[in-house]
């Protein structure tokens, strides 16, 4: 049977979904239709504004993280495509409260270019912006000199949460750039797919796997990863994801981490909890303290089956900011 979807005209899916999303969270967010962005329903007091965005298809990222303690505005592009510079500039202007705007950008060519252009347009209108680039995907580490570098994936949630908490407490734009950069540098992610995803309006996934294969090192756009590996029990698969991250971050006895076990779109919470169980078993063995964990589907790749693991080297300051109150459609504590 071909893949089936709950969709009208696929070209209308993003705007229709945004309308429905905004109606679901009227106390938290507002949706601006054209140019499209999502902004907090209530904006009181002076603070640095946080704006992020990127292609759609990764929900709840980024629109689900707009609210107190996290983003001020999020700018969704078409499915897997950067928002336009014009959209981003409109969101920056709407979010700015006179203290400058922190732009949180995942490292993809289109996103980087359009956020940079939007920042220059905003500067011409007297709005100061600074950018934190998130590039945590270990699968794309060590590629060509002069190439695009590591992709940005699930660590962006930690950057948005931690910088969001600091911004509520009155951190300056310079402080937030330094903090966000520190979080991004201290985090690495690896992902695997058990089955690929299907674009809206398509009836088959972007790639096929044999019964005994998984795709290792996938990104979040339905592209192939760095290679196929044998399918196996969750303890084996989690080990393959975790060991390279532990090595890259040089984690060892006495170190502390914030862990994100992230579903890629169609992975059940029961399985994600099992992944987290295996992850903590490995880290316990190494003497690495799991200070906090986030387990669920937060940075998805449409309906991909699979998961990513993100580890963020943590200290008291980061854990304390992680624990600070947050109230958004997708994250609340």
């Amino acid at each position: 049977m071909p893949v089936r979807q709950l969709v009208n005209d696929p070209a209308d899916l993003v705007p229709e979904a945004l309308r429905g999303f905004a109606r679901a969270h009227p106390t938290l967010i507002r949706h601006h239709e054209d140019p499209a962005f999502v902004i907090r329903a209530r904006r009181e007091g002076d603070k640095v504004a946080l704006v992020s965005g990127g292609g759609s298809g990764h929900e709840p990222l980024h629109v689900g993280f707009v609210g107190a303690g996290m983003l001020d505005a999020a700018v969704p592009g078409a499915v897997f495509a950067s928002p336009t510079a014009y959209q981003i500039k409109a969101a920056i202007e709407a979010a700015d409260r006179g203290q400058g705007v922190l732009l949180i950008v995942k490292n993809y060519t289109g996103d980087v270019l359009n956020f940079q252009i939007a920042a220059e347009l905003a500067a011409d209108d007297g709005i100061e912006t600074r950018t934190v680039l998130v590039d945590d995907d270990l699968a794309t580490d060590g590629q060509d000199e002069g190439g695009p570098g590591r992709r940005g994936t699930a660590a962006v949630v930690a950057v948005e949460k931690i910088c969001g908490a600091a911004a509520e407490r009155g951190a300056s734009l310079d402080d937030l750039v330094a903090l966000g950069g520190r979080v991004a540098r201290s985090a690495r992610t690896l992902a695997l797919a058990l089955a690929s995803c299907t674009q809206p309006g398509q009836d088959r996934p972007s790639f096929e796997l044999a019964d005994d294969e998984i795709e290792f090192g996938v990104g979040i756009h339905g592209e192939r990863g760095v290679g196929r590996r044998p399918y196996g029990p969750v303890r084996d698969l989690v080990g393959e994801l975790t060991r390279p991250i532990v090595k890259a971050l040089e984690l060892g006895h006495g170190d502390s981490v914030i862990a994100i076990v992230n579903g890629l779109g169609s992975t059940h919470d029961l399985e994600l909890a099992a992944v987290h169980g295996e992850l903590t078993a490995i880290l316990d063995d190494l003497g690495v303290d799991v200070a906090r964990s986030l387990v669920g589907s937060y940075v998805t790749s449409l309906d991909m089956r699979g998961c990513s693991i993100t580890l963020l080297r943590a200290d008291d300051e980061l854990v304390e900011l992680w624990d600070a109150p947050v109230r958004t459609p997708a994250l609340t504590w």
Binding site: G77, S82, T84, A85, L113, I117
Partner: peptide, 10 residues
């Protein structure tokens, strides 16, 4: 500037 891709904004 309100066009997708990279050529449009350039």
């Amino acid at each position: 500037l309100n066009t997708g891709g990279t050529s449009g904004p350039l």
